Amino acid sequence: MSKTTSPLTAATLSRRTLLAGIPAAALVLAGCSANAGTTSTTATATTGATATPSATASGAAAAGSVAALAQAFQSTLSSDQQSTLLQQYSLANAKLWSNLPQGLLSGGMGGAGGPGGGTGARIGLSLGDLDDAQLAAFDTLLAAATGSGAGEGYDEIQQHLNADDYLAANGGGSTYGRANFYVAFLGTPADTGTWELQFGGHHLAVANTYVDGTLAGATPSFRGIEPNAAFDENGRTNQPLAVKEAAFTALLAGLSADQLATAKLSDVYSDLELGPGNDWAFPATRQGVQVSTFTDAQKQLALAAIAGYVDDLADADAQAVLARYQGELDDTFIAYSGTTALTQRNDYVRIDGPSVWIEFSMQNGIVLSGNHPHSVWRDRTTDYGGTQS
């Protein structure tokens, strides 16, 4: 009898092989540290937390809902795995995301006193700890919680996992690869109460927070990728951030010379301003060119750039969030630094609205030659589902 293989198992998954005590030099050789710059921030792990298993996955959940599929995934796990997966819903646990590979975090590279002052590694189960049936159940959950469009949501994440497999096979070693991505449930997946589906690894953070069965927030949402150019891995051609990058370049290319002059930032931005560890640090004054001055065609380009991130959500959720951002579009600002091509190191673009905040920043290569992007989507009111303490 043939066995159906989940996309998550497209590459052979080894058991977790994270290395403890990685020397500091490895942060430069194998992680994505911040680069020196006028206003750079450093991407590290955030607030440390004691992972206290206290949640269950037995509450009422409508058939086919994200909560029900979370419960179905949980039911495939052993009791020990369930204890690792199910964690207390708390801001401290919700902040345990990073752009760095897990091996660098567990090796102490996100420790207090380091750049950014973050502590702690991701919690939950690694994909490398799951068998094929468990991976298939998680795959179904992930598909339901994320967007269905080509190059967005679920498809983008599959390409992202392929990228980390590519890094593992092309100089990165066991620190990289899909086996080093983690899933945790913070709180009880159910139609009542608050819980978060937390999934991430190198260059990826998914943080969907649900309150009484409704998505209350999906940020902070981190996306980065290396390699940035198209590459072949696991039987397909991949370029995970192509949709987002194309939307930003089209937006900047659609502005007039005068608008670009207004949008140009005077500082050099060598990394994200609101990356890991920089929660609710939104600037008091918005910079750049205001979208209210745009033509209708230019406004559509701005909305498309925003949709490149919002469409990572399940389709119905994405429509609701995008409608909110569209209603605030005239009060949103676009700013950039570096070149408008978004191909050179320190090229940077920002969308800053009453609610939405999106940044895209080009970084130098780490494992491979060539530049690669970091990007983050935040929301001034719904980061961490609105939980601030």
Results as ranks from 00 to 15, higher is better:
residue 369 S to Q: 13
residue 233 E to C: 09
residue 213 G to R: 11
residue 117 G to C: 05
residue 81 Q to E: 12
residue 358 I to L: 10
residue 317 D to V: 10
residue 139 D to K: 05
residue 234 N to T: 07
residue 29 L to E: 13
residue 310 V to G: 06
residue 238 N to Q: 04
residue 24 A to Q: 10
residue 202 H to K: 06
residue 142 L to Y: 04
residue 175 T to E: 09
residue 56 T to V: 11
residue 186 L to H: 13
residue 215 L to P: 07
residue 244 K to A: 08
residue 115 P to V: 09
residue 279 D to Q: 08
residue 354 P to L: 06
residue 266 S to R: 04
residue 315 D to M: 06
residue 144 A to T: 11
residue 161 L to P: 02
residue 168 A to R: 15
residue 15 R to N: 14
residue 236 R to Y: 01
residue 190 A to G: 14
residue 15 R to W: 07
residue 8 L to W: 09
residue 270 S to T: 14
residue 137 A to Y: 06
residue 378 R to D: 01
residue 224 G to Q: 04
residue 7 P to Q: 04
residue 58 S to Q: 12
residue 265 L to A: 02
residue 21 G to A: 07
residue 234 N to F: 01
residue 183 V to I: 15
residue 345 R to H: 11
residue 144 A to Q: 14
residue 77 L to M: 10
residue 151 G to P: 03
residue 151 G to K: 03
residue 301 L to S: 15
residue 350 R to G: 00
residue 168 A to V: 01
residue 180 N to V: 04
residue 257 A to E: 10
residue 133 A to G: 08
residue 325 Y to P: 05
residue 47 T to H: 12
residue 281 A to N: 12
residue 40 S to Q: 15
residue 9 T to C: 07
residue 340 T to F: 02
residue 32 C to S: 07
residue 193 G to Y: 11
residue 222 F to S: 01
residue 251 L to C: 07
residue 11 A to S: 05
residue 311 D to I: 03
residue 149 G to C: 01
residue 171 G to D: 15
residue 113 G to I: 13
residue 101 P to V: 12
residue 4 T to M: 13
residue 289 V to H: 01
residue 155 D to S: 11
residue 123 I to C: 05
residue 340 T to A: 06
residue 99 N to S: 05
residue 191 D to K: 10
residue 174 S to D: 15
residue 203 H to F: 12
residue 149 G to W: 02
residue 188 T to D: 15
residue 272 L to T: 01
residue 257 A to P: 00
residue 115 P to N: 12
residue 296 D to H: 04
residue 244 K to Y: 00
